[in-house]
Amino acid sequence: MNVFRLAGDMTHLLSIIILLLKIRATKSCTGISLKTQELYVIVFLTRYLDLFTKYISFYNTTMKLVFLGTSISIVWYMRYHKVVKQTYNKDQDTFRHYFLAIPCFLLALLIHHEFTVIEVLWTFSIYLEAVAILPQLVLLQRSRNIDNLTGNYVFLLGAYRALYLVNWVYRYFTENHLVRWIPWLSGLVQTTLYADFFYYYIKSWKNNEKLQLPA
């Protein structure tokens, strides 16, 4: 594993820790899209089916279990915790899951490496992850007040896939030039979706102002 991949994983983990910290410490999930969080649960469930069929490393297995456990607990807090659920911006979080999930599933049926259940679901999870942030970005745009933890959460979540892009370039040149179009292009789309957010996040940070996205 190279340093870019590790930095990507750690950024991803840190983003989730920040989100859980926000929810647990402030007993609030304002500004967080339940739609996006539920999509991440689907992403992890469909991608990590190989937990049962193949062993890669202790690191890999542990991280997969952590991502599954934390994403499920975030959804649990937002749906069922009696204080947290009252802070959920339900009226603003209106993006429909199936607008994203169904096209991604159809695309995975058409474009994949191998027509097996595990491989098609893995491919689906890659496509879905690329667009799963959209409900969150829409909600941020509708929020007049984006708190620091939420802003940092989304920033780190976007930075993680950008670091994976560098990791893929590095792996291409250091590991027998293996071409993997599905994750590469999906990862590129995923990172591009954050471009606008990155711009305003960095601008607000440089000017020491509160983060706000133009409507």
């Binding site: 991949r5 994983d9 991803h12 991608r47 190989d50 890669i56 890999n60 991280m63 997969k64 991502f67 490496h113 191998e114 491989e119 893995w122 994976y164 293996l178 071409v179 993997r180 994750p183």
Partner: peptide
Amino acid sequence: SSGVPKHDEL
């Protein structure tokens, strides 16, 4: 690129 890539990433 030959065969199915092993998914060793997260």
